[in-house]
Design a protein around this nucleic acid. Structure first.
Lengths: 170, 170
DNA sequence: CAACGATATTTGTTGACACAACTATTGTTC
DNA sequence: GAACAATAGTTGTGTCAACAAATATCGTTG
C-alpha cells in the first residue's frame, strides 16, 4: 500500500526515508484538496487568503478585528494584511476604521455584502470537505487529526529550538 | 485531543464538522512543515518550486526531461515551467536544449553546479523531515500515509466526476 | 512633558505565479 | 503533399505575496 505515491510520481526505487514519503504525501494531498477550493473561490472572485480573512472577519462580527489579529489567525499566516484587506474593501466585502482608543490599530469589519458572499460559499465548501473525507470513519478522522497535530508540534518545537540555538547555514 | 486546533485558532465553539477540522489541520500542518523547508531553500537562493524542479531534473539524469514532464511530476503541478527553468538556467543550475527527434520539445538537464547545489541540501532536508516526524512509530507513519492517500483519492475522484458531470456554480 | 523604544499599519519594490494568446512543429487526412 | 487539428513551449499581462523601510501612535522613564 505504501507504493502508491511511488507509482504516482513515476519513481522506480522505494523512498529513501519514510518521513520523506509522509511529507510528500502531505504536500500532494494538500495541493489536491486546496486546489478544489481555490477553483471555487476564484469563481467567486476570491483568493484563498481573502476567503480565509473573510471568515475570520465574520467570526469576530460587529466588534471587528485588528489587522495583526487577522494575520495571526490565518491558516497560512500573512504579514501583508493591509493589501489583503485593501482587496476586500475594493470589492465591498469589508470596511476599515481607525480605532478610537488606540489610534495605531485599524479595526476591520465585514459588511453585509461580505456576509452574503460567505453565505453563498458555506454550502459548497462544506460539501467539498465532506466529499473529500467521505468514507472516513470517525476513528480514522480522529487518528488523522491526531497525527497531523503531532507533526505540527514537532515542527514548531524544532523552530523554537532553532531560534534560541545554533544557526548553521548562514 | 481534538480541541487543540480550536485553542490554536482561538475558537470557542467546537467544529461544525469533523471533515472541516481535518482539512484545517492538514492545511496548518502543511504550512508549518513547508515553512521550515522554504526558509532553508530561500537561504540557498531557491524557491520551493525551483528546488522541486531541480530534484526532478536530478532524478532524470543525463537524458534530461521535457518541460511538460517536469510540470506533471512536480508536487504542486505548474503550468508555467518555462520561467521556472529560466530561473534555474540563469543561476547556472540547469541547461536547455531543443530535442533532435521532436523539435517541439525542449530537453532540460541538470548541470554539475545544480548537482552540487542539491547535494548541499540533501543532508539538511532529510534532517528536517526526520525531526518533523520524530517520535512517529512505523505503524503511525504507515497509517498517516494511508489516510493521506485515501483523502487524495477522494478528491481526485470528485474532480473527475465534476468534469464529466454537472457544473453548478457558473 | 520630552525623549526613547515598542507597537500597528502602510507603502515601495521586487519576485513569483496564473491565465490566456501566440508561435513552431508534428501527425493525419483527403 | 496541402490543410487541419493537436502538441510543446514561449511570451504578455495582470495579480498576488514577501521583505524591508517609513510613518504614526502609544507607553514609559527621567
Amino acid at each position: 500500500m505504501s507504493t502508491s505515491l511511488q507509482r504516482e510520481i513515476g519513481k522506480k526505487k522505494p523512498f529513501e526515508d519514510p518521513s520523506v514519503e509522509a511529507f510528500l504525501n502531505l504536500a500532494r494531498t494538500h495541493a489536491a484538496l486546496t486546489g478544489e477550493l481555490s477553483r471555487l473561490f476564484r469563481a467567486h472572485g476570491l483568493t484563498d487568503a481573502k476567503y480565509n480573512a473573510l471568515r475570520i472577519l465574520r467570526g469576530h462580527g460587529q466588534p471587528g478585528v485588528a489587522c495583526q489579529t487577522i494575520g495571526a489567525e490565518m491558516v497560512v499566516p500573512s504579514p501583508d494584511v493591509t493589501r489583503l484587506v485593501d482587496g476586500l474593501i475594493r470589492a465591498g466585502l469589508a470596511s476599515r476604521e481607525r480605532d478610537g482608543e488606540d489610534r495605531r490599530v485599524v479595526t476591520v469589519r465585514i459588511t453585509a455584502e461580505g456576509l452574503e458572499a460567505l453565505a453563498a460559499l458555506d454550502g459548497p465548501v462544506l460539501e467539498i470537505h465532506r466529499r473529500q473525507f467521505r468514507g472516513f470513519g470517525a476513528d480514522e478522522l480522529t487518528e488523522l487529526n491526531r497525527l497531523l497535530v503531532k507533526a505540527r508540534r514537532r515542527s514548531e518545537e524544532g523552530r523554537a529550538a532553532d531560534e534560541s540555538g545554533a544557526g548553521a547555514t548562514e
